[in-house]
């Protein structure tokens, strides 16, 4: 168990491709950090640098008090769970779990004890003598977890471990991994492209885009106060609506419609307005500050319905209770305190 400190870490490949650009993250002991971002954002590269599978071009990585830039993966006191599990196909589950311990010369009795312990925690007891190909996807996933647990490492590294599972199993394993991590209180770094996994599992989320950090924060912070238009559009489902607007004398103007802001400040000039589908409601009566929306189509989700339409020329998705009345045009209100304003050029929050 240890802190993991990533300081100004960059990774360049030959040909001046910068995969990771000056990333700094301080990970607390026992914390569950999720690195999330679209493919190619550098999240896996960053994780692999922590694991020691990629060299660090610039910056420092520390595990505990020790700088590990030049340390071999096996010496870093970490364990990694891979997307395709990377179980040794010719070894039984038991041998898979024991292999790492055997290589470091752990006494036989100790290995047996730890393997028994891990297989008990992961309910793998009855599968210990099977080969990986005789196991289901979820069981393989558990073996991969087990291989990490028996090492009793300072940190777990997860590289999209749930991507190969079907949707139902993914939800179940998500819960299991989270519980397990709580119980063992081992510092964990978890890479995923799935914002839902990030939201549900993380103590803190690190949103990466194009090799740099967009935002670090708890799931709620990132959800409620996205620091950039990118984070706003990436976190949350359905994605936050981003609408071109402009500020005029304290009011927010979208095309030919105006939103009153009830005291919330709006700078003059062009803006990007961010509003979540669930932060809008049907307007009652004909009041000021209502905006008109034309409906294109409706997605019925059971508990709610997702209405897709246009506000002037901007696409907009709106979440309504499933019984809500619908017509071709809707009059809606925006909650001024739940609006997010971004600079259209830099994408930063205003």
């Amino acid at each position: 168990m240890a802190q993991v400190t990533i300081e100004n870490v960059s990774k360049s490949y030959a040909g001046d491709v910068r995969a990771v650009n000056s990333v700094s993250i301080a990970i607390e002991d026992g914390e569950f950090i999720v690195l999330v971002g679209p493919s190619g954002c550098g999240k896996s590269t960053l994780l692999r640098m922590v694991a020691g599978l990629e060299s660090v071009t610039e910056g420092t990585i520390r595990i505990g008090e020790r700088t590990v830039n030049e340390v071999e993966p096996a010496e870093r006191d970490i364990a990694m769970v891979f997307q395709n599990y990377a179980l040794y196909p010719h070894m039984t589950v038991r041998q898979n779990l024991a292999y790492g311990l055997k290589n470091r010369g752990t006494p036989k009795a100790e290995i047996d004890k730890r393997v028994a312990e891990a297989s008990r925690i992961l309910e793998l007891d009855q599968y210990l003598d099977r080969k990986p190909r005789q196991l289901s996807g979820g069981q393989r996933q558990r073996v991969a977890m087990g291989r990490a647990i028996v090492r009793e490492p300072a940190a777990f590294l997860f590289d999209e471990p749930l991507s190969n599972l079907d949707a139902k199993l993914r939800v179940q394993m998500r819960g299991e991994i989270k519980q397990l991590q709580r119980r063992l209180a081992t510092t964990s770094i978890y890479v995923t492209h799935d914002q839902l996994e990030a939201m549900t599992m993380a103590d803190r989320i690190v949103v990466l885009n194009g090799g740099h950090v967009e935002q670090i924060g708890t799931p709620l912070e990132v959800y409620r106060a996205p620091q950039s238009a990118f984070v706003a559009s990436f976190i949350g489902s359905p994605a936050m609506n981003l609408i071109a607007a402009r500020g005029e004398g304290g009011r927010l103007v979208i095309g030919d419609q105006t939103v009153t802001m009830n005291g919330a400040e709006v700078p003059n000039g062009p803006l990007t307005l961010g509003v979540r589908a669930e932060d809008m409601a049907l307007a009652s009566g004909n009041g000021d500050g209502h905006v008109e929306m034309a409906i294109d189509y409706v997605e019925e989700l059971g508990a709610s319905r997702l209405v897709h339409g246009r506000l002037t020329d901007e696409r907009l998705a709106l979440s309504l209770p499933s019984g809500a009345p619908l017509s071709d045009r809707l009059s809606i209100t925006l909650d001024p305190h739940r609006l997010h304003l971004f600079d259209p050029d830099s994408g930063r929050r205003i």
């Binding site: 020691g52 599978l53 096996a74 891979f82 990377a86 040794y88 470091r104």
Partner: peptide, 11 residues
């Protein structure tokens, strides 16, 4: 990944 897993396993 097998090579990487083995490297982490100290092989």
């Amino acid at each position: 990944e097998l090579l990487e897993a083995a490297r982490i396993d100290g092989a």
